[in-house]
């Protein structure tokens, strides 16, 4: 692996030729129009026959988007840490699960869900900071050992969490006003008596999507428009040069590691409220973030967003339309990406 990174990729991705670009834009517009028609129009019977029902299809898309939001929150920290430190932190899933448990404890004790979210972010950021200072800094530049040590940490952490929180399934309760379903202004069917049936969707999941988008935009702005972001990007490209120009790279590393870990912890609480918290989640989200960053390109925030979108949508659509083989779809996307563009969609050749 060379020392060049991929975060700068977010700045620009020059088109390879106008004709090819035009084809893609045309294709995109066409897909967009079809989608808009599918949302607005009353579905004819033949379409219902293929896609079960409008409600099922639109819900699958919305679920795919919200799941993608969750995956993005976890994977963005993972890819950030990798981009800067070349450190494949396989204990990232454990940070997610620990965040969920910590958030659960804080939220149930204080009775305030928001304190739970904030507390988990801070607590897991601290854990990440300690991990970076005590473990990963000692193994700097030794990729294989870092990876193996992080696997070790994840195994120990999984058993410790099992000892403390047992194997039970926890549900983090969201405040009353954001739980339950709302009606979206999308008509899914018309009853025989003429009343319209609107699409009902859990409000909380829309909030998950909103939070993910907000954090994604904030990350992008920080990386591209601030001095700290400049330092991080410089560190990605050339660590030695950055430290030679008077920046203490260890502070930058520690800060990024803490941020990445904190995001995993935050995602833990948000995901634990939307779905549930149980042992085994650590591996699930680690695997999901690995697939997301492999598809999106290691080290790229935009890549993580694109990867999360693809994987989230694939998982949900697979679950509805071919549940038995749905799991395979995710890996097919990964295999195809690796075959056509081994560095990932937004990745730079290493």
């Amino acid at each position: 692996m060379s020392e060049t990174g991929n975060l700068r990729d977010d700045l620009s991705n020059p088109p390879k030729g106008p004709t090819r670009n035009q084809i893609w834009v045309g294709f995109g517009v066409l897909v967009g129009l079809v989608l808009i028609w599918m949302i607005v129009a009353q579905w004819p019977d033949w379409l219902d026959a293929i896609l079960i029902s409008k409600k099922a299809f639109l819900s699958a898309i919305l679920n795919g988007l919200t799941l993608a939001g969750l995956y993005f929150l976890v994977a963005s920290g993972f890819t950030l840490i990798f981009g800067l430190m070349r450190n494949v932190n396989l204990a990232h899933g454990s940070l997610y699960l620990l965040g969920a448990y910590v958030g659960y404890e804080i939220a149930t004790r204080t009775g305030n869900w928001f304190i739970g979210v904030g507390g988990a972010f801070i607590a897991i950021a601290l854990v990440g900071l300690i991990m970076q200072i005590l473990v990963f800094r000692r193994l700097e530049g030794d990729d294989l050992r870092q990876t193996l040590v992080s696997i070790g940490i994840s195994i120990v952490a999984a058993d410790l969490m099992l000892a403390v929180w047992s194997g039970g399934t926890y549900q983090i309760l969201t405040p009353e006003w954001i739980s339950g379903a709302i009606k979206l202004p999308v008509v899914t069917a018309e009853r025989s008596n003429g009343t319209l049936v609107f699409l009902k969707y859990p409000l909380y999941r829309l909030i998950v999507l909103g939070v993910a988008v907000a954090i994604g935009v904030a990350l992008w702005l920080t990386l591209n428009k601030t001095r700290i972001g400049m330092m991080i990007r410089a560190g990605v490209d050339d660590r030695e040069m950055l430290s030679a120009s008077g920046v203490n790279v260890h502070y930058v590393f520690a800060g990024v590691f803490a941020l990445g870990a904190g995001l995993a912890g935050l995602a833990g609480v948000i995901g634990g409220s939307a779905l549930s918290v149980a042992p085994g989640e650590d591996i699930r989200y680690l695997l999901a973030s690995l697939v997301v960053v492999i598809v999106g390109g290691m080290g790229s925030i935009t890549g993580a967003a694109i990867g999360a979108l693809l994987i989230g949508l694939a998982e949900q659509i697979g679950l509805v339309y071919f549940p038995t083989y749905g799991v395979v779809l995710t890996f097919v996307i990964m295999v195809v990406t690796l075959a056509i563009r081994p560095e990932g969609i937004m990745g730079k050749r290493l």
Binding site: I52, S59, Q316, V320
Partner: peptide
């Protein structure tokens, strides 16, 4: 984990 799509179908 995520049953919402199944529920919708």
């Amino acid at each position: 984990k995520d049953y919402s799509s199944v529920i919708a179908a």
